[in-house]
Design a protein around this nucleic acid. Sequence first.
DNA 1: ATTAGCACTCCACTTTATTGAGTGCTAACA
DNA 2: TGTTAGCACTCAATAAAGTGGAGTGCTAAT
Lengths: 361, 361
Amino acid sequence: MELDDRKVKILKAVIKTYLETGEPVGSRTISKYTDLSLSSATIRNEMADLEELGYIIQPHTSAGRIPTDKGYRLYVDDMMKQKAKELDDREIQVNDREKELDSMRDVLSEKVDRVEELLQNVAKVLAKDTNYATMITTPQVKGNKLKFVQLSQLEANKLLAVIVMDGNMIRNKVITVSEEISQENMLKLNILLNTSLTGLTLEQMNMSIISKMENQAGEHTQIIKEVLDAIVETISNADNLKIYTSGATNIFKYPELSDSSKASELIYALEEKQSLSGLVKEDEDQLDEDSDDNHGIQVYIGNETPVESMKDCSVVTATYELQDGMKGTIGIIGPKRMDYDKVVGTLKTIRSQLDDVFKKT
Amino acid sequence: MELDDRKVKILKAVIKTYLETGEPVGSRTISKYTDLSLSSATIRNEMADLEELGYIIQPHTSAGRIPTDKGYRLYVDDMMKQKAKELDDREIQVNDREKELDSMRDVLSEKVDRVEELLQNVAKVLAKDTNYATMITTPQVKGNKLKFVQLSQLEANKLLAVIVMDGNMIRNKVITVSEEISQENMLKLNILLNTSLTGLTLEQMNMSIISKMENQAGEHTQIIKEVLDAIVETISNADNLKIYTSGATNIFKYPELSDSSKASELIYALEEKQSLSGLVKEDEDQLDEDSDDNHGIQVYIGNETPVESMKDCSVVTATYELQDGMKGTIGIIGPKRMDYDKVVGTLKTIRSQLDDVFKKT
DNA sequence: ATTAGCACTCCACTTTATTGAGTGCTAACA
DNA sequence: TGTTAGCACTCAATAAAGTGGAGTGCTAAT
């Protein structure tokens, strides 16, 4: 059996209606809803075919149809193709959407000095705007280089190391050393550290530490060792993936997700965040598939999602990118019958606004 | 009618049984459970009295009794009195509990450099251990003084200010200035900042800023102004209350809290955190009431809690204190029928372990 | 190929037992 | 006077039975 044009039209109508109502869709509804002007009986025949083809399913014998994952897939793929074509209209579209996104822009342009807060705000605003759960990761770098280190004395045997990486990622570390250190030696240590480490990536650092240390084996070997250890540890922690979530309770707005056990599992995943890292795309090898403008937007439907606890949901992710190649992921988690169209649009807008903000900073 | 000794005994038995089972408690159960050796009929009479006195209530005519808030209150107050007397046994008690708290100690003694992570871990471990939702705030200071500031050049017109407060609270701030600054002037600026600001609290700083600025009105007035603004802003943000939560999904373990709307409201409060700040005790004027050992532990039952969304829960909070007078709050949120005894004990242990960790750091 | 018509299915909802835990009350008892 | 056995009564919870309606599949006519 073939999936002819009319079948597709009916399928889309079924899905669209189901997205709106959340109720199984009957033949009569479609007959009236579409401009196909076909009787419900004809629709019924076509729907039977569509069911046989695996695009829709009946929850029980005498009910209407709801989309299967396969059905959603077709719908979403088609929509994405549409979106990609809309490239020209984008300006207008963005302008249109800007009205509803005013609050978003306001929050984003607020003076938030810390990336953390910014990201949390983005997650929050997105959640509020879409009524789905959201997540956002810190930007990730591959081989970030050390810009400079600055050691200063905090207390008798406590040092403060300020570590600045390329892209102005800054980390502090309080180092407790075993022996006191003179002002003069501090200065020396600072110079030593900067001359030998600046411009190195973490991997390069690990390689060179040993040799450097042996070279410098002077009276303060112990301190140098402690300081180096601390710095290496801090840097390796620095690009640890951090994930912020928001709007977990939005899932209670969708009955199909809000029964106790499902909700608990989902919210747990959002709280623990651990498992969400599966949503971060490792490689950008999907280029060929996601053509043009949709580049970096990924829709997971039901079982497609890499996160086990979200197999009853759909997840849409977008990759945002900072000027210096740092990449992060934004994700929206909702019921399978989410408003894919709106979500994809919002994600695109947010992403471009994020770019703006980061460029301005 | 008086609340005689026997009534109290029966009341406690009812509550204890209810805490364990979560089911309304009938007279027959009590008759067998206690060592009072009274028939169920007698218990029934007493229970009728207790109901009239407002300590217990029937969910419906032919059901057993469950405690009212007033009943819980009496039970908890008594328990706290007991706990206070147990001062001598505490050592032993702690030793006993230590077995189950091994994991807690492990996590706490881990090398976590950032207070944030430590607190998050505490919340997490507490939640896992108690099976309730937990929260913990960052330590708060009244008038924290500036230890030193260190300005360094990041890029052409971006400066990095590292701000260290007493108690080694460290903040970074990237300051974008309107004009470039020479290495030499940077040094001057550093000295100026430290000589004029070190040792001052935020309030004092606000006072002195204007005058200092006018004194120094040289070629770099603009930069000085920008830097000062940034520093003041950062410091005032620094002691913003931060709240970490964990174990929100634990509430699904208690049927009385896990219906969709209640759960949603509760989890929302835990996610938003905003409202939780009501649990932080402003003043320590409760000293007289909470005698001895229970100092700093506060039990809120049902409507007693300051957080609106938790009126169906009980909340137990403890104040922890760092050596330098910084105080934070730990909170446990669970059903009214929570295991108060265990919770109070665990909170005390955690608190003392927190003290240890902070002293060691 | 399309459609009107009709018998059939099955969920969702309401109504009507049925059960059993637990009470309140009374009368007897120490 | 306090305690207790006994019994009638209540009421949630569960099961069983009945009803309505939305929607289907099939057939026969167009």
